[in-house]
């Protein structure tokens, strides 16, 4: 069994969001970078669990980004991947990134490709579907469970107000979210082992970009909270009905 896990970096969940260069660039000054939580907690950890159940499983990691992504990939390797590839280019266009990942995936003939359901910076939820289309593979988005029965995957995905369970013959591409696995932290043995795990650097292939970021902005700040005394709950209900027109 060969699994490819797509890893992206993202700003720490508590990072202050600001922009520079006339609001055209994210201000990375002082920002702590982490493995995108969906990639780490759900995609990568589920892959590690599958390897624990079948030790012949091989896990490769792929990321698209500059040299500054390497600490993130090392941390992912400390959790449990076997080797990593970094496509040496920065891009904000999903199609361009997906094209790079698909190229790496083609070389590896993977049975399973896992991505997180989205990155917490651009919130695109697009890479998994694009990679699947580029490789002509089936795709299940927003998976909450993933089991293997021989070479068939049994995948549960979120639907409105419930879940849907499907069987898919491998190979398959899956985007992962909460429910797939429980978050782990790397242990010292994993951190030591990660230092000697192979990390390939690959130059990007030529690919188009279909979109570009014009600029960023911050949401309007709320006017301030209107407090209602605890013994006047009916006043809150009146405000919600008459003023906010929310009920």
């Amino acid at each position: 069994m060969k699994i490819l896990v797509c890893i992206s970096k993202s700003p720490d969940t508590t990072a202050k969001i600001a922009f520079t260069d006339n609001n055209t660039k994210f201000d990375a000054n002082g920002v702590q970078w982490i493995i995108n939580p969906y990639d780490e907690w759900f995609a990568l950890v589920r892959a590690i669990e599958l390897k624990e159940a079948d030790p012949t499983t091989v896990i490769h990691l792929v990321t698209v980004g500059g040299v500054d992504v390497e600490p993130i990939i090392r941390k992912a390797l400390a959790l449990g991947g076997d080797e990593a590839a970094r496509v040496n280019v920065d891009s904000q266009d999903s199609f361009y990134i997906a094209s790079q990942i698909a190229e790496v995936a083609k070389q590896g003939a993977y049975d399973i490709i896992f991505t997180g359901k989205e990155t917490i910076d651009y919130n695109g939820s697009s890479i998994g579907g694009m990679v699947a289309e580029l490789l002509d593979l089936p795709y299940v988005a927003l998976a909450t469970h993933f089991e293997l029965k021989g070479t068939t995957a049994i995948i549960t995905r979120e639907i409105e107000g419930g879940e849907e369970i499907a069987e898919v013959a491998l190979p398959v591409t899956v985007s992962c979210q909460k429910g797939m696995a429980e978050a782990r932290i790397p242990n010292m043995r994993g951190i030591m082992a990660a230092r000697s795990k192979p990390m390939k650097v690959i130059e990007p292939i030529a690919a188009d970009t279909l979109t570009s970021i014009v600029d960023f902005g911050l949401p309007l700040v709320k006017a301030g909270v209107k407090l209602v005394p605890a013994d006047h709950v009916e006043e809150l209900v009146r405000l919600l009905h008459e003023e906010a027109k929310a009920i």
Binding site: I120, D121, N123, T211, I213, V214, F216, L218, P219
Partner: peptide, 12 residues
């Protein structure tokens, strides 16, 4: 973008 902490204008 940034999980609702900001927005972006994207040109297609």
């Amino acid at each position: 973008v940034f999980s609702g902490k900001a927005f972006a204008n994207i040109a297609v």
